[in-house]
Amino acid sequence: MITRFMLLFAIIIFNAQARDLDINAKLPGGDYVLQNIDGKNTSLDKLKKANGVLVIFSCNTCPWVIRWQDRYNLISALSKKNDIGFVAVNSNARLHESVDSMDEMIYHAALNEYDFPYVMDEDAKLAKAFGAMKTPHVYLFDANDRLVYTGAIDDNAKSAKRVKKNYLMDALSSLGSGKNIATRKTKALGCSIKFN
């Protein structure tokens, strides 16, 4: 009986983790220190620009990230054009000593010609604050630090050519030009973030 209660207690504790951010939620963890692949420390507060900031939870090995990342530099360029900061965050704390180490992140970014900050989220603090569960998962905040789009990059991980709905690109353009974002929340399959 005691074991049953302990198990139930453990389940309740496990389920008490932060919920995924809702639309209009305030940017959490803006001041958390994040180490970039250039060796410098940064934070979301430092990375955001006049029209907001885009955060992508990502990693080095997830097959969904691998398929989608041919669009990362296009997203980076569109963010820049719309005066929106852009950062990819690696929160796989359990793998920070192995396949998602800083050295591996630097190599992965070089190999794929990332032209944007790719930061390590130590102990997955930022992912926990966001309630983020998977990679890739995007969160777009406006100039007032309010969440205006969250979810998928687009509707086709396997092929950029076959994309029909460019959710994130459309949201970036709308946010940059002060228009309403048509689709604010989407879902996609992805890899779990490996918390400690």
């Binding site: 569960m133 998977k134 998928a152 509707d155 879902k187 996609a188 399959l189 992805g190």
Partner: peptide, 14 residues
Amino acid sequence: DENFINAISQSWSG
């Protein structure tokens, strides 16, 4: 994928 996820469970993040 999105319709698939929601058909399995509206509460599933994917």
